[in-house]
Amino acid sequence: MSTSALQVAISVMPALMAGLVETLKISAAGIVVGSALGLLLGVIRGQQFRYASPAIGFYLHVLRGTPFLVQLYIAYFVLPSTGISWLKWDSTTAALVALSIYTSSYVTEIVSGGIRAVPAGQWEGAMACAMNRWQSLRYVILPQALKLILPSLAGVYVNLIKATSIVSVVGITELTRQGEISILRFPADVLLIYGIVAAIYFSYCFPALKAVEWLERRAARGS
């Protein structure tokens, strides 16, 4: 029985690896776009703008209050149906949009939290030296905020990898979907195949989580 398990494992591995590559590709795209959007929104939310900061806060609540799968279906079904032409995208783009927005909601919170954690005196010192808001942000506030932001960003990346498994339900052939397809070939080995899939995710996410802990410990030591 164990040799046949090994044979099954060897047989499905190429497909699973292809799925892993796809997972890495979409998560990379998601983190790039999501981080850019999150950085922009987070910088705005981290300061005291009268209308923009609460508006972004409301937007974040909406994102946090709905399941990612629902957001994915909205990107996949609802947005293309509104009649606006550039929203009529394919499943891969829909998945990327959903993942990017999901990532950006975390990044926004982390960036704004990091900016708020920089002592107010730093803003005052910079402004007293005749720096304007954007100079203060760029040279004084953001460099100090970054030390707090970076460890948490690594944690967001892990969440993103796990969320990519959900886009399997709209047919994207990432790792989870490849697992489902492989099971069609070997229906008796469901547990084995999903076990291998879980092990692949684990081997990727577990070191990343350890890196997060190490980064957080280092950041805490420096203060």
Partner: peptide
């Protein structure tokens, strides 16, 4: 370190 969906399938 593993996705919820995989845990549900397992």
């Amino acid at each position: 370190a593993t996705p919820l969906l995989i845990q549900i399938y397992l």
